[in-house]
C-alpha cells in the first residue's frame, strides 16, 4: 500500500496530431485510481481525441500519431514495443453511440472475454458483468435475443457490461449518455458511482451538471490560438466548479462561454 501515490495513468507533455494538424498539445494529467475524472470543454477542443489516445484507438485514424509520454505503470503506451491490443485490453472504452455487436446479448459479453482467453465459467462472467452494469434484471430472460432489440439506454449499459467483462484497469467513456434520455442518463451516472469502487473512469461530457455531480476530478480543455486543444485547468471537481482559477474555466462552467 505504499504505492498509493502511483496514478492510474499519467501523461507527460502528450500531444496528438492529425497529419500536420496538432489537435491536442502538451497535456500533463495524473489520473487518480478509482476515481472518476471528467474532461470538459467546448466542442472541437480535442476531448475525444485525447480520450481515444489513452487506449490507442487513434491508431486507426490514418495519419494520426502521438508525441510525448503516456504512462501506465511506468510503461509508455506509445513506445515502440508496446502492443496496442494489450493496451486496449487494460483500458476499455465505451462510445458515444451505443454500439453493441449484432449478436445475442450473451455473445456481446462473452466474445471479448473469449478472444482474450477467458477460461472460467462464461455463464457466470456474463451474469456478473450484467449485474455490475445494472442490466441483469432486465435481460436475464432474454440473453439469447439480439442486442439490437434493447433500448438505447440498455444498449449502452450492455456496452459497459461488455467492457467490464474483460476486466480492464481503466474505462474510458466518450459522452456515454449524450444519446440517451434523462432517466437512462441518471442510471448510467449511478452505475459509474458503483463502478468507481473498482475501476478508474475517465469520462468526456458536455453536460456540466453531470460533470459536477458525478466526477471527482475535472480537466478543463480549451483550444489555443493555433486551434490545438490543451488542458488549461485540472483539479478536484469541487474546486473547478466553485472557485476556478482560470477565467475561461469560470466562464465555461457557468455557461457564459462564447
Amino acid at each position: 500500500m505504499q504505492n498509493t501515490r502511483t496514478y492510474a495513468i499519467e501523461s507527460n507533455d502528450l500531444s496528438i496530431h492529425y497529419g500536420t494538424f496538432t489537435a491536442v498539445r502538451g497535456v500533463n494529467l495524473k489520473i487518480e485510481r478509482q476515481k472518476i475524472t471528467a474532461i470538459i470543454g467546448p466542442s472541437g477542443c480535442g476531448k475525444s481525441t485525447l480520450l481515444r489516445s489513452f487506449n490507442r484507438m487513434n491508431d486507426f485514424v490514418p495519419g494520426c500519431y502521438a508525441t510525448g509520454e503516456l504512462l501506465l505503470q511506468g510503461q509508455n503506451l506509445y513506445s515502440k514495443d508496446i502492443d496496442p491490443v494489450e493496451v486496449r485490453r487494460k483500458i476499455g472504452m465505451v462510445f458515444q453511440k451505443p454500439n453493441p455487436f449484432p449478436k445475442s446479448i450473451y455473445e456481446n459479453i462473452a466474445w471479448g472475454a473469449r478472444i482474450n482467453g477467458f477460461k472460467g465459467k462464461m455463464d457466470d462472467l456474463v451474469e456478473q458483468s450484467l449485474r455490475s452494469a445494472a442490466l441483469w434484471e432486465e435481460v436475464k430472460d432474454k440473453l439469447q435475443e439480439s442486442a439490437y432489440a434493447l433500448s438505447g439506454g440498455q444498449q449502452q449499459r450492455l456496452c459497459i457490461a461488455r467492457t467490464i467483462a474483460i476486466q480492464p484497469e481503466i474505462i474510458l467513456m466518450d459522452e456515454p449518455a449524450s444519446a440517451l434520455d434523462p432517466i437512462s442518463t441518471l442510471r448510467i451516472e449511478e452505475l459509474m458511482q458503483e463502478l468507481k469502487k473498482n475501476y478508474t473512469i475517465l469520462i468526456v461530457t458536455h453536460n456540466m451538471q453531470q460533470a459536477a455531480r458525478a466526477s471527482d476530478y475535472t480537466a478543463m480543455m480549451m483550444i489555443d490560438d493555433q486551434r490545438a486543444g490543451g488542458v488549461i485547468e485540472f483539479d478536484e471537481t469541487k474546486s473547478i466548479f466553485t472557485r476556478p482559477k482560470d477565467k475561461r474555466t469560470e466562464d465555461y462552467v457557468t455557461g457564459r462561454f462564447g
Partner: peptide, 25 residues
C-alpha cells in the same frame, strides 16, 4: 448490494499487480 462485483474484479491491492503490455508476436 453488488458483492459479486468484488469477485470478478481485482480488489484495490490486487489492482497494483504489474502487467505486461509488451508486443506479443
Amino acid at each position: 448490494m453488488k458483492e459479486e462485483v468484488l469477485n470478478i474484479k481485482a480488489t484495490e491491492t490486487q489492482s497494483f499487480r504489474q502487467f505486461d503490455l509488451k508486443k506479443k508476436t
